[in-house]
Design a protein around this nucleic acid. Structure first.
Length: 858
RNA sequence: GGGCGCAUAGCUCAGUUGGUUAGAGCGCUGCCUUCACACGGCAGAGGUCAGGGGUUCGAAUCCCUUUGCGCCCACCA
């Protein structure tokens, strides 16, 4: 029955069992299961640019433990994997990998060969390639990356059903993304608008509020005098951006500020450039900032946008989409002065303007350097500018208090793990101030599936976009032609034009439940079996992006939250408690860690990080995990090496209650029952760490105490019935222990399980309490006594095997019965010739007087 | 400025409705090559539970407060 190696080992078990699970389909989803029998997971699709890092291993392990538990608890687990491969990260990686850049004006070249495949030299000048060629290279590279990712995730033992794979750029994702968007358009939840937006000048694309981060940068206050137009003196303002003087359209102070009330409605002359601008009043102006009066430029920051809109000001645009000063002189601005800064970047223009101000005497006092926060695109390298452009938006409550309140309320549809993460979501939604900008002026992404009629002047008619029928999705409006038009009408007056933009990656990944669940896909009946999903696992850093955007789409489309539970993972911290960075040591790459410690050891470390809690990277914890996995193999070997019914004549198929007769064994099983309940409760609450802690704690106690105590009896030192009780209890406990550890240590448990079983441990049912009427506390007395005997031997510096002539245990009455029950086991475990139990002491404390045999004491 | 979290042994962390003497692992010290395991076992040392105040018969746990650390958001002329 058993097939136990002489020397159990963890080496090589990953490859062996991962391959076996794959061929056996151990983790296949049962697509016929009804909703009530399904546990569905909205797996985070990792960005496939670059490489996987320790954080991936950490958080994906958390999800996998829950998936494995739910599977064993009887659910058909829908656990797909997706790759987030569309969008800017891939474009950047393609540029760096092949040494190219996308230039839509370049014609397509069939059979194009990039100058490099990996690691172009640093000084290499990127060569321009056509958009279709660029997209081909994107497809090529993501395929390479995705293979790498899949290999690592398999090595990590994720119990994913790999047949449920998707990529956010694949045809299905494009179709789902476009379908959902078109429905948003039809219901008025998506709209297009020309407006000032934050703009990255390097990537030349608009960015959304959720992708903006503050970075602290040095800046400087410049005090500048604006002469009153009527010659009655001047007004001084402080600005950090003097280079925008040419874009100045007004000054603004608070309406209650008595210093400036006399000036409201009057005009001043802008230094150097000469345009006349009005002094205005607005509550957003802060009397205690700078000189209390600010210049408004179109546009220096988002406050300027607010003032420009609410005060109905003129526009003087000077910064272009590439971040350089535009060639055309704005109205009212001195052309000669303006020519000095044309074509410069803002920092270059600033020097020129400051020099001119210094020369003219309009720069007052010294420039005062400061550190201040500046808005950046989270992937960007230069500060964002505000640029006016036409963009698509999806309503998310940023401009609509009712919708905002509804989306805040959706938080209540979800159980958060840990609970306090709810606040992150609610705070973010409550603080929104704009709708969700979903269009991007980039290349590798899902095309926005609309066209525009062109009027007789060739101008697009944006208010009435032409939309495709859902049945032909996905489309690419740059090559597909709308109904009622012919290809030669493209970009012709009276014809049509395709929308040139793509969706931001979040606009597609906000639909992962719909993509993975085959929402509205032809012939599929999956969606109703999995939606709303049971679980959304993700990092807490992307609550404002992925979690919120998924919620928004589901709210619009289904009027329900897309999942029942949100499980938020923490960060990985360096051992010095700083953010995990590049460090030395091969163990800090996922591959190196898995190689050095073994998968189960790394998973053990991951699972010891409690949900939502930042966790220190700890090789020590991985060593402990390896020790645990090793111990599991060895104790399994021991338990299984004691044949269950070896010549005893005892019926091992009889009920547990009939075979397990010894109160000590029943006591152990009662403890195990409690652990099973606690571990199950932990997993039910998405707290794998608690389940692990309870299981592990019991396991070490089981090995160190119970096994040592009953070992001799199991060897049949006290007769067949006594042995049968111990053997049966040992096997019962082993079976439960292997299953309890299976979600955390899938490889070691599978290895040991297969020594005595035919099928995978991961296909077994989750252990249930056996419910024998054992007294969990009973065994503690015997173990306390055993510990005292061990201590006596340790202090006498003799072997634990040394013979003991006699032990006199002094214990209060309440414990004496318990000691009697364990008396024989204790004598055998401690090699004790004679045990005397006498009345004494109080509570549950006992003392031992140990007389070690003189012979053999050394 | 608003919100959230954290603070327990040298280190990493448990300690779920308040309940005897605050636990584990690592590290450290000593002992034991023992018939599951030397990738081992046994034992030991080590803590004013961040500080202060309060509630209670009883507080690491509940309340108030101070300090320190971290995160999110807002403001950024």
């Amino acid at each position: 029955m058993t097939n136990i190696p002489d020397r159990p080992t963890l080496d090589g078990i990953e490859d062996r069992w991962a391959a076996r699970w794959d061929t056996d389909g151990t983790y296949d989803f049962d697509a016929t299961a009804v909703r009530a029998d399904v546990f569905s997971i909205d797996t985070p699709p990792p960005t496939v640019s670059g490489s996987l890092h320790v954080g991936h291993v950490f958080s994906y392990t958390h999800t996998d433990t829950i998936a494995r538990y739910q599977r064993m608890a009887g659910k058909s687990v829908f656990y797909p994997m997706g790759w987030d491969d569309n969008g800017l990260p891939t474009e950047r990686r393609v540029q760096a990998y092949y040494g190219v850049r996308c230039d839509p004006s370049v014609p397509y070249e069939a059979g194009f060969e990039p100058p490099f495949r990996g690691d172009p030299p640093k000084k290499h000048q990127a060569i321009p390639v056509s958009r279709p060629n660029f997209l081909e290279l994107c497809d090529e590279l993501v395929e390479i990356d995705e293979e790498l990712f899949e290999r690592l995730f398999r090595r990590l033992g994720l119990s994913v059903d790999w047949s449920l794979k998707y990529a956010t750029i694949d045809e299905r994702s494009r179709r789902v993304s476009q379908r959902a968007f078109l429905r948003n358009v039809a219901r008025g939840e998506a709209y297009t608008q020309e407006a000032p937006t934050l703009w990255d000048i390097d990537f030349r694309t608009a960015v959304a509020q959720a992708e903006i981060v503050d970075r602290n940068r040095p800046g400087a206050y410049h005090k500048i005098a604006f002469a009153k137009s009527d010659g009655s003196g001047s007004i001084e303002i402080d600005t950090t951006r003097p280079e925008l003087l040419a874009a100045c359209v007004a000054l603004v102070a608070h309406p209650d500020d008595e210093r400036f009330q006399p000036h409201f409605g009057t005009t001043v002359r802008v230094p150097i450039y000469g345009q006349e601008v009005e002094v205005r009043a607005h509550e957003l102006a802060q009397p205690d900032k700078g000189t209390g009066i600010a210049m408004i430029c179109t546009f220096g920051d988002t406050t300027d946008v607010t003032w420009w809109r609410e005060l109905a000001l003129d526009m003087r645009v000077i910064i272009g989409r590439d971040g350089r000063i535009l060639p055309d002189t704005p109205a009212g601005v001195d052309a000669t002065a303006y020519a000095e800064i044309v074509g410069k970047y803002p920092n270059q223009a600033q020097k020129i303007v400051v020099d001119a101000l210094t020369e003219s005497g309009e720069l007052i006092g010294d420039i005062r350097t400061i550190d201040h926060d500046v808005k950046f695109y989270e992937r960007g390298e230069r500060p964002l500018e505000v640029v006016t452009s036409r963009q698509w938006y999806i309503r998310n409550g940023g401009k609509d208090t009712d919708l905002r309140a509804a989306l805040v309320g959706r938080s209540g549809d979800v159980t958060w793990h840990p609970e306090h993460m709810r606040h992150r979501y609610e705070n973010w939604v409550e603080g929104l101030n704009s709708d969700w900008l979903v269009s991007r002026q980039r290349f590798f992404g899902v095309p926005i599936p609309v066209w525009y009629r062109l009027d007789d002047a060739g101008e697009p008619m944006y208010d009435t976009p032409l939309v495709p029928d859902e049945s032909i999705l996905p489309i690419d409006p740059s090559t597909d032609v709308p109904d009622g038009f012919t290809a030669d009408q493209r970009d012709q007056p009276g014809g049509f034009a395709g929308d040139p933009d793509i969706f931001d990656t979040w606009a597609t990944s906000s639909l992962t439940p719909e993509i993975a669940g085959l929402w509205e896909e032809a012939g599929a009946d999956l969606f109703d079996r999995v939606f709303p999903f049971d679980m959304r696992p993700q990092g807490h850093d992307i609550i404002r992006t992925w979690l919120f955007s998924t919620m928004t789409r589901s709210h619009h489309e289904f009027d329900v939250a897309p999942w029942k539970h949100a499980a938020l993972s923490g960060w990985i911290l360096d051992p010095d408690r700083k953010k995990m960075g590049k460090s030395t040591g091969n163990a800090q790459t996922p591959e190196g860690m898995l190689e050095q410690f073994g998968t189960d050891a790394v998973r053990y470390w991951s699972a010891s990080g409690r949900p939502g809690v930042d966790t220190t990277f700890s090789e020590d914890q991985m060593k402990v995990g390896r020790k645990l996995a090793n111990k599991l193999l060895n104790v399994s070997k021991f338990v299984l090496s004691v044949e269950p019914d070896d010549g005893s004549g005892v019926d091992m198929d009889a009920s547990l209650a009939l075979t397990v007769t010894d109160p000590i064994d029943r006591s152990m099983l009662a403890k195990l029952d409690a652990v099973i309940v606690e571990a199950s409760t932990g997993y039910d609450n998405f707290d794998y760490a608690r389940a692990l802690e309870r299981t592990e704690s019991f396991f070490w106690w089981f090995c160190d105490n119970y096994v040592e105590l009953v070992k001799n009896r199991a060897y049949e030192a006290m007769g067949p019935d006594a042995a049968a009780s111990a053997r049966r209890a040992l096997r019962e406990a082993l079976s439960s222990i292997q299953r309890l550890f299976a979600p955390i240590l899938p490889f070691a448990t599978e290895e040991a399980w297969n020594w005595w079983n035919e099928s995978s441990v991961h296909a077994q049912s989750w252990p249930l309490p056996v419910g024998l009427d054992g007294d969990a506390a009973l065994i503690d007395a015997a173990i306390d006594a055993l510990t005292l005997v061990r201590r006596a031997k340790s202090e006498a510096k003799v072997s634990q095997r040394a013979d003991v002539d006699s032990v006199t245990i002094t214990a209060p009455g309440a414990l004496r019965a318990a000691l009697e029950a364990g008396r024989a086991d204790l004598a055998a475990a401690g090699s004790i010739a004679e045990i005397t139990i006498v009345e004494g002491g109080a509570g549950d404390s006992l003392t031992c007087d140990v007389v070690i045999a003189s012979t053999g004491a050394g």
